[in-house]
């Protein structure tokens, strides 16, 4: 599951541009992730601050 660390996120939209599923959207300063996310982790590499993390589902 994709976890967004909002205290780190700089809402720049870099992650949005590399998401192969179009699952991310920036709504002003708030990054939204929808059901299309496949937890591929590509966005976690593109984030300049490290605000995104894929965590195993318990």
């Amino acid at each position: 599951m994709l976890v967004i660390h909002r205290e780190i996120c700089g809402y720049c939209g870099a992650c949005v541009s590399v998401c192969p599923e179009g699952a991310l959207e920036l709504i002003d300063a708030y990054l939204e992730v929808d059901d299309n996310c496949i937890s591929c982790g590509i966005c976690t590499r593109a984030c300049p601050l490290g605000a995104l993390e894929v965590k195993d589902e318990e």
């Binding site: 179009g22 959207e25 593109a46």
Partner: peptide, 26 residues
């Protein structure tokens, strides 16, 4: 709509940037 480029994507055009070809900046 800039780097996010969602609008064209909603119109059916794949705007995904191959991830190694996005310069991530601070």
């Amino acid at each position: 709509d800039g780097v996010e480029s969602k609008f064209a994507r909603w119109c059916g055009i794949d705007t995904t940037i191959p991830y190694r070809e996005l310069a991530t900046c601070a």
